[in-house]
């Protein structure tokens, strides 16, 4: 990663993990503390139960760089996997996450793993890197799109579809005063999308 003055990520060292376009994968494997599997399972169930809730959604919105994430208990309750896809590098905003509901979830979930120093510990990032296992293959169906762009595209499309539903838009297309605009290649591209 190139050091760019003023950019938050400039201070971060290169992190392992595969990239495809704008996003990268971040997968961590840990050992579950003996006797903690059930407590961990309960914590995960609580997060899963509330995943549709305002708080969690709001936190994901606040993070704004996380595409998806999963928490998995495996190997006969002895090991734990956290697998996720972030825009850029996972650790760019890790300190910022600490202040959201997701940070609290992280704190609780990883507290059941051996050796976890705590999300706000200065050594937290190094601990994650030490437990990270880069993927052999990582591919994205939309390598050019960040979470922010996807949300933006969604809003634009919703608005676009609403415009298409108005009779005024159809009338505007038929208005000779707009002929010049309609003839531009950019508008023709728009009409390609408007027709289907």
């Amino acid at each position: 990663m190139t050091a760019t003055a003023g950019a938050a990520q400039s201070a971060q060292p290169e992190r392992p993990g595969r990239k495809d376009g704008v996003c990268g994968e971040f997968t961590v494997f840990t050992r579950i503390k003996p006797g903690h599997a059930d407590a961990l399972r309960e914590d995960l169930a609580r997060i899963a139960d509330t995943s549709d809730n305002e708080g969690n959604r709001a936190a994901l919105r606040q993070i704004g760089t996380l595409h998806d994430a999963r928490h998995v208990i495996f190997d006969n309750d002895t090991r734990f996997m956290f697998a996720s896809v972030f825009d850029g590098s996972w650790d760019t905003y890790i300190d910022d996450f600490g202040k959201t509901a997701v940070g609290a979830n992280f704190e609780r979930v990883f507290s059941h793993s051996e050796g976890f120093p705590g999300v706000s510990d200065p050594g937290a990032k190094d601990w994650f890197v030490a437990h990270q296992e880069p993927a052999g293959v990582f591919v994205s169906a939309y390598p050019d799109l960040t979470v922010q762009q996807i949300w933006k595209d969604q809003h634009v499309n919703e608005a676009f579809q609403e415009v298409l539903d108005t009779p005024e838009f159809r009338a505007a297309l038929e208005n000779p005063a707009n002929a010049e605009l309609l003839a531009t290649p950019a508008f023709q591209k728009l009409l390609e999308e408007a027709a289907v």
């Binding site: 838009f169 159809r170 027709a195």
Partner: peptide, 11 residues
């Protein structure tokens, strides 16, 4: 239901 149509699809 979306019905493709030029210039604007019908929905």
């Amino acid at each position: 239901v979306t019905i493709p149509e030029k210039p604007v699809r019908r929905r």
